[in-house]
Design a protein around this nucleic acid. Structure first.
Lengths: 220, 220
DNA sequence: GGGCGTGGTTTGTGATCACATGAGGGCATG
DNA sequence: CATGCCCTCATGTGATCACAAACCACGCCC
């Protein structure tokens, strides 16, 4: 039946299914803003790119659509979502709600090793900003947040926050691409300072500001 | 090729795809607690029940798994999730976080017609409680909450809340089945009273209590 | 020159099949 | 009688195919 692309399957398919590999690839690509909003995808195109048939491509797309990372038209066509301003504000509010809680839960568990790590990541964030690398910025910025929130020991809550990031991915890219700013991440420093001081109200405020500032300038 | 189950497809397939029909059926079934936690499902079994092949069944399952409504073992076996106590507490915290915000956003838009409607639904809730109809109780209880939150005009936030309900579905059933109580929904009345009075702090408190009380007795 | 129908072509949907894997039952053995 | 092993069957995965509908572009007509 199929003579090609067999060798790669023999070893890898059992350990990690093809649909999962496709899913993960597309997911990070979307979350990091590597795809512009409204871009069209096709099952056959995805299959061709990952050297799989339509079946795993379809499952990956279905999964991403369920998370809001992809938009399915009424006829089943696949594209990244184009968010309305109301939608963006709502997702920003969700980020604030979830991430303030996550940070708050992480605070009592945030030891010096974590803070050091956050500071190091923050250096990379500043570097990406100065290089005007939008995708790199989004990636390291999310890494900063995820590193902090992992300490909250709240996997379901973190998963929800990541779902929101995913939905905002393509839009974030378009947003930060438009944003010509070389400011270092000031709010990140406030977050780190609040963590060091064990200042919960300050931490909540800093996270809320960091999360909503970028999205605010679109609506404002 | 296939001679059976064709007539149903000719009319319905175009309007609503088979995988969507399967998805919706399973979704409400899970959300309303009609399936016990840990129950096993099979793609072929689902396909047989809905008179479709494995393909739409797989897509529906994949979608539900992405929402946390179903658990996929490492070998791909499908079952409803069995939640740990930590997980339940976390989901309860998420309900509180999201639904307090939704209620708060709905408050300024809550006119008398909505309150009347909530009171009517609440009558049905009390009826279900007195009949000890667990599934009916869960269904009407969620209808009460959804009716209120729809007024918040926050579709993304509502979708997240529904995802949490979905994850808690099977566990809720097991919980309320164990709970032998004939109390009328006291917190619902507090919610309605706060809505009437335009009392936002009271509303937030009432929603938080309503949402966490049921789940509390499991951990406590 | 512009609006509209009509063809081909691309696309998603669903069915079916081959295959590998893992779970569960039955049998033998201690 | 309990325990461990093996075999069988059920189950998920992925590929391929047939089909219908939607999209797009070309050309026609006004």
């Amino acid at each position: 039946m199929n003579l090609t692309a067999r060798s790669s399957q023999d070893a890898a398919s059992a350990s990690v299914p093809a649909h999962d590999r496709v899913y993960r690839s597309l997911r990070t690509r979307i979350m990091h803003g590597e795809i512009t909003p409204g871009a069209a995808l096709t099952l056959r195109g995805i299959g061709r790119e990952f050297e799989v048939s339509m079946t795993p491509a379809r499952e990956a797309v279905r999964r991403l659509a369920a998370e809001g990372a992809l938009f399915l038209s009424s006829s089943g066509r696949v594209s990244t979502p184009e968010l309305s301003n109301e939608r963006i504000e709502e997702l920003a509010a969700l980020r604030a709600l979830l991430e303030v809680e996550l940070a708050s839960r992480a605070l009592p568990r945030a030891h010096i090793a974590l803070i050091d790590r956050l500071q190091m990541i923050n250096t990379t964030v500043a570097e990406m900003v100065s290089k005007r690398d939008a995708v790199g910025y989004i990636r390291t910025n999310l890494e900063f947040h995820r590193t902090l929130y992992l300490r909250a020991q709240a996997p379901a809550m973190l998963a929800m926050a990541e779902t929101v990031w995913l939905q905002l991915g393509p839009t974030m890219r378009a947003l930060y691409g438009r944003l010509r700013r070389t400011d270092p991440p000031q709010n990140h420093r406030l977050i780190i300072a609040a963590l060091k001081a064990g200042d919960e109200p300050g931490l909540r405020l800093a996270v809320r500001s960091d999360v909503t500032q970028g999205l605010r300038l679109l609506a404002g």
